[in-house]
Design a protein around this nucleic acid. Sequence first.
DNA 1: GTGAAAGCGCTAACAA
DNA 2: TTGTTAGCGCTTTCAC
Lengths: 342, 342
Amino acid sequence: MVTLAEVARRAKVTGATVSNVLRNPQKVKPETVDRVMAAIRELGYRPNLTARALARGRTSTLALMLSNITNPFYPEFVLAAEREARKRGHFLLVCNTDDDPAITRAYLEQIAGSLASGVIVMNTDLSERELTEIASRGIAVVLCMWEHVQPSRALPCVTIDFAAAGALAAEHLSSLGHRKFGALVGAGSGGPQTIRLEGFASALAAHGHADKSLAVVQARDSIEGGYEAAIGLLRDKPGLTCIFATNDLMAIGAMQAAADLGKRVPDDISVIGLTDIELAHQFRPALTTVRLPAAEIAARSIALALEMIEGGEPAQDIYVVRSPELVVRASTGRAPSRRRRT
Amino acid sequence: MVTLAEVARRAKVTGATVSNVLRNPQKVKPETVDRVMAAIRELGYRPNLTARALARGRTSTLALMLSNITNPFYPEFVLAAEREARKRGHFLLVCNTDDDPAITRAYLEQIAGSLASGVIVMNTDLSERELTEIASRGIAVVLCMWEHVQPSRALPCVTIDFAAAGALAAEHLSSLGHRKFGALVGAGSGGPQTIRLEGFASALAAHGHADKSLAVVQARDSIEGGYEAAIGLLRDKPGLTCIFATNDLMAIGAMQAAADLGKRVPDDISVIGLTDIELAHQFRPALTTVRLPAAEIAARSIALALEMIEGGEPAQDIYVVRSPELVVRASTGRAPSRRRRT
DNA sequence: GTGAAAGCGCTAACAA
DNA sequence: TTGTTAGCGCTTTCAC
């Protein structure tokens, strides 16, 4: 391995100068710069990032903690995060916590402040208290898509308006003439996706729908989970003409359930999701959904972490990115004319 | 940040002893161990992995280079890789190269041998020569799922028998009575998936099918790519009763194409994929496919890299993991009785 | 069984 | 403009 010292020797300068050429070339006489650059090239020198990190007191890696990258939302998110990090000269450590607090904790203990100087924490089972404690060790912690009723006051947080997302879904269904609503609420880590549901329910109320026109059921946040929950829901309430799922995976499961029960989507029943993962438009019928700007959230989170690392305190506490928007595709349509009773 | 020195001071020993307690506790008197452990606990000490890496000359991170994590094969792979790495006390840097040799190269230059002491390279546009050069800098490079006609002789390589996988698909279709075959060949990075196709074609020949009973078409390796290619293929060769795609994404696209052309799967046409990503069983109809043991390949690759780092040279050059196996689901069925001409 | 000391490769004052 | 000098926090001989 070629070291800075060898480059220095070859260029007949000291290490400090080589270091300067690399970091503040304007502070070095042009011809020295040339000489050093030549030496670097000839020797094939590459700075050792580990040594640099130790000397500077901060690394060039960021950690991204998520529950399980196998959920199709994350790959899209990770890609965007990684691109932003790379653009800013950083690398991304991906940490799957499997929703296991012990794994999460172990990761944080080992990595935070030693391997990574910043951590983006998504959907976690750890308490805010515990996370705050990590942050107090001097490492940049940013909460991402924190979906609790109370936004965090202690940790900077990048998120979107989940209630508005739910409301968009409600307005869409309502405007199509639906009157009997089903909702599948996913329970990811970090608790159930209640805010999405509340936004949905409030908007329904605002449009004059009675409380009892909405049937809610919990589901695991996956295609299979949505399928099972929808089967149950549709059996219990055969009069439903539409289903809102707090995310796309469950919505896709619901479409399959409808098909298996002999209901056509969207003729007999409309299904709307939330997130707009790629699968949403790849599935047939293509899923109508409310789009969450994942890439933007990812990039913002990385940027925020880096700003904290560089500048100290974040300028504000909560960063809300661009609003969610409705994406109408093939899975929703006008409510069928009444034929059966609820 | 609590350092080793502070722990040492508190435990009234030197740093060397603390270091030993952490690494070779049997070399330290039990009561000293206790004292040091107590100090560690009281102070909340966490070793700094960056400093450790610098001192030991090797880091605890591995890099995984893949083209784009958004391809659903990778998340499953990454999860398995990360678990294996974690089990062995390492962390995983995920690098999306976007199939761009420049990005790949930049990553390798920056990371290899400084941030990561091992790199798993999947599907890449870099030449073997270039990769060998990186490896010669003393960093562990393992090729993963290298799918070239010539296996690499220079770099250790974890792979599976792609030809056998293709053959399984052919045998399955042949045994169902099909006689007119279509094939979609994906062209990922690292060139087209020729070996899978060759395995398919050879098996067909071995079962007595004439060369011209197989129509091959290239496709982009995605649902959309498979869709477009299949539309073209089915228009050109309306007599096809089955389609083999060199991977699942294209197979799913092909199923959608068939549906859009008014063909029922599997009644009018059978579709078989290769890989068995999660989507394969989640889609309707569920996709018959040939399963590649992704998790096993991932784990083996990580393990191999670590062995090389620890032990120097790998014991052998090519590691072939468990054979692919046929997974029969709903997208394949008996060939329809002849109705039309080719 | 424990300590002293040298160093991993780089950065960052501060001097010159 | 360049060099000197201390480290960063940890590991690792080698004495004691």
